[in-house]
């Protein structure tokens, strides 16, 4: 059965994040109108990286179950990693963990277990800053992701298929991204095709939609285009999502509208799961 390879340190898999940093990201975010989309995108990618790291963190350090690349596209297409990681393509997750640009102190509200709410401080590492500049070369970003993954698959031919997560407001300026998406999804390991999931951050104040099976309920053509580019959830991810109480229909796709894809990380199987992620 495809998508069943064990993810471990000798046979890791790969995440490539594509981050839309174009000038349209200056507009407010529908989900949180007091926030620019660029800030929403930066929060989303930082939270994804944080959760990916926490999934691999043990008391004695980080286990390198994943290699990670972050590609920014705003005007030009480049590695969006900064600081000590500036310009790097794919790096082991432990290297990401130990090299954030900075670690912010944030607060969150938690249930105190007795009907009340507690404010709890927590550390929020930043790897990618909010940025909004230039046009939206999404096709070129998908091409660069393909180069990263050809390299990775050359080394780990039997890995759990790599995942590409594209976070965008949906408006490519350099052509029809579906062709480059398809070319990316044609890459395979012996365990299956590369997966492309899309997170659409829109200025529209529409309800969040997670893992739909049909494009009809989606509010605009950009969302529909991204939906069509998104891979279907493989059976085990589908089952894990259902077990997590996502009301999925058959053929659900790796697409969310005004929502985040942190849950995908939770669905991946690296051993006995604990039902927690950082929001």
């Amino acid at each position: 059965m495809p998508y069943s390879a064990e993810i471990n340190r000798t046979n890791p898999t790969c995440f490539v994040f594509l981050v839309d940093q174009s000038s349209s990201m200056l507009k407010p975010f529908g989900g949180q109108p007091d926030k620019q989309k660029a800030e929403g995108v930066a929060d989303a990618i930082n939270r994804l990286l944080q959760n990916l790291i926490l999934k691999c963190a043990k008391s004695d350090g980080i286990r390198d179950y994943f290699y990670v690349g972050v590609i920014g596209y705003g005007g030009k297409v480049v590695s969006a990693l900064g600081g000590a990681l500036a310009g790097q393509a794919l790096v082991p997750i432990s290297v990401i963990a130990n090299n954030p640009l900075r670690v912010e102190q944030r607060t969150r509200k938690v249930d105190d277990g007795a009907g009340g709410i507690l404010e709890q401080k927590f550390k929020f590492p930043i790897w990618v800053e909010a940025k909004a500049i230039g046009r939206t070369p999404m096709c070129e970003a998908l091409k660069l992701a393909r180069q990263y993954l050809e390299m990775f698959l050359g080394r780990f031919a039997d890995c759990y298929p790599p995942l590409v997560i594209n976070i965008t407001d949906g408006m490519a300026t350099d052509g029809d991204p579906r062709l480059d998406a398809q070319a990316l999804q044609k890459l395979t390991s012996s365990d299956g095709n590369v997966l492309l999931f899309n997170a659409h951050l829109s200025a529209k104040r529409a309800l969040a939609i997670e893992y739909p099976s049909l494009e009809d309920p989606l509010p605009d053509n950009f969302a529909k285009l991204l939906f069509r580019m998104s891979s279907k959830l493989p059976p085990r991810l589908f089952e894990a999502a259902r077990a997590d109480k996502f009301p999925l229909q058959p053929e659900a796709r790796g697409f969310v509208f005004n929502a985040d894809l942190v849950s995908v990380i939770r669905f991946l199987d690296i051993g006995t799961r604990v039902a927690q992620t950082i929001r």
């Binding site: 926490l54 954030p100 590492p125 604990v274 927690q276």
Partner: peptide, 20 residues
């Protein structure tokens, strides 16, 4: 045993979550 240890941010967060 664990609360006294000085840890990197990720291990701190996991410690806060607890072991299961």
């Amino acid at each position: 045993d664990v609360d006294a240890q000085s840890l990197p941010w990720y291990a701190e967060e996991k410690r806060e979550q607890g072991a299961y």
